[in-house]
Nucleic acid binder design. Structure first.
Lengths: 290, 290
DNA sequence: ATGTATTTGGAATATTTATTCCATTTCACA
DNA sequence: TGTGAAATGGAATAAATATTCCAAATACAT
């Protein structure tokens, strides 16, 4: 690959071997990075990926650090810097050291900076959701009912087929359950309601049902859960409060409180519970088979 | 002034020439600084003053920089570092560089901790995912490309219809986008592939497409995105790296790094980006209509 | 298959940066 | 104003770090 030509071509300069000017701002840096990342040989691609994901660290890292992080020799990093238009690593680092002025981008500071922007700016909104997500996770770690979690794992790992239901807001969670179970070879069916077919006949004794539902509780979810109980199919419930409908029918109730931002609520903690539950169940089933 | 005596006196050790331990946290550093600053000769006082007021620059400055800032020769700075209990400038700088890097997905230390603990019980597994989620969110706050986020919001808020595509692992995210857009009355279509219908004819000029894809990138997602570009439909991409396919075609690339636990990865940060993006777009569209 | 161009790793070198050391200056006190 | 102890500056050296270069490996085209 002929580096200079390639980069010139990307810039439509049409002049070969022209010396490329170095990016003079972080924004320009990211642009250049994106531009050259299109087509790179293996080692340089590793550099691009690592640097894209760890841009902040350049200011305080040596070539050797970056090289180790990207799992390439130092010379590859040097080549990469030059590919970006810098004379070498030092020049690139200077860009980031100069920009460092705004203090420690530790999580707290950075978050404050993000929120500082205009009230409605996308970054401010993102910062709010990040914060809400973190609070939700913290809260979850403190308040989740261990017994219920253990029961849920026990119930699900003994089931022949795991059925999953969740609508509207809870549908992504249900879909995520289905994805992990599929990946881990656990027989599972997602009751997604396509074509208004409810597959309720597929709910058979020996199976189990995971129902995910938050206020306002979706009709179909409640209906399927009720049917499950009628058929003696045990129910694992992911919901927002112990007083939600179905709670008394369930073998295990996992209550999850999401911290909201305005009228909005991201299912951060719910996802964590879902993935942990699914992985634990898959592990338990595997163990039981051996 | 007899340095060692003075410092020992401040520590009430009463033993002269004892080697002083270096501060091991920024807090300890500030304390030590305050303690010795009480009575210093001229040049060392200049060092103390400058360093107290520019602590944050230590991580990215050389001895010469600090010396110039404090208007003293480099050797004075060296003496000052030793007075604080460090072996030299490098050791002091390390403290600040480490503090700066804390909280990054540090694959050497942090992940080993995560994977190291025998995560047998469901509760332990959950704790791991909670921790991974927290790290992902922190990392997101620090590293998300603000420009790209703003561009994404601009592009999507001008679109007539917003199309969404995401398969397998990314499907729950795509579904969540669809849910929020529906709730906020933003015209949106989820390309879920039910019945192998691809709805590709619905992609029309004036629309925009959100594609969510992580390695290994799903065929259908790539195909639809390619089609969008052919029809001049702008593309907003949520993906794992800048070098992923489609990145060059996209109007905005939002790279999101999820911290994994073992082979598993919860889309915690991705969800946060999705909800923030969707809400920002809905807000922008509402504003535009008024 | 064969030759050519690209890519790669690492050893050699250059450069920058940290650290020590000591001759000189400054200061406190008689 | 002379004397010893402390403080200072800068030159010399050591260490770390960046950068180059080239032989070997690999990919690519014919």
């Amino acid at each position: 690959m002929e580096y200079l030509f390639h980069v010139d071509a990307a810039n439509d300069l049409g002049q070969m071997n022209e010396t490329l000017t170095a990016p003079d701002s972080i924004e320009a840096f990211r642009e250049r990075l994106a531009a050259i990342s299109i087509d790179l040989p293996r080692r340089l691609r590793q550099c691009a990926d690592f640097i894209a994901g760890n841009t902040d660290r350049i200011a305080v890292s040596t070539v050797a650090d970056i090289a180790a992080g990207a799992d390439v020799p130092p010379s590859a990093v040097m080549r990469f810097c030059q590919l970006l238009g810098f004379s070498g690593y030092s020049e690139m680092q200077k860009l980031f050291r100069d920009a460092y002025a705004m203090g420690f981008p530790d999580y707290e500071t950075r978050l404050r900076n993000l929120k500082g922007g205009a009230a409605e700016s996308p970054t401010a909104i993102l910062a709010e959701f990040v914060e809400a997500g973190r609070l939700s996770l913290e809260n979850l770690a403190k308040s989740l009912d261990e017994t219920a979690l253990n029961t849920a794992v026990a119930v699900l790992s003994q089931a022949q087929t795991v059925h999953i239901v969740g609508r509207r807001r809870s549908f992504p969670i249900a879909a995520y359950f289905a994805y992990i179970f599929e990946k881990m070879a656990v027989p599972a069916i997602l009751h997604d309601g396509v074509g208004q077919l409810d597959y309720s006949h597929a709910l058979r004794r020996g199976d189990a049902l995971i129902a995910v539902t938050f206020a306002p509780y979706a009709e179909e979810t409640l209906a399927l859960a009720a049917l499950a109980r009628k058929r003696d199919v045990p129910l694992v419930l992911l919901t927002d409060r112990l007083t939600s409908p179905l709670a008394r029918e369930a073998s295990a109730v996992l209550t999850i409180t999401e911290v909201d931002f305005g009228a909005f609520r991201a299912p951060t903690a719910t996802i964590a519970v879902a993935v942990a539950l699914a992985v634990a169940v898959a592990a338990a089933r595997k163990e039981a088979r051996e």
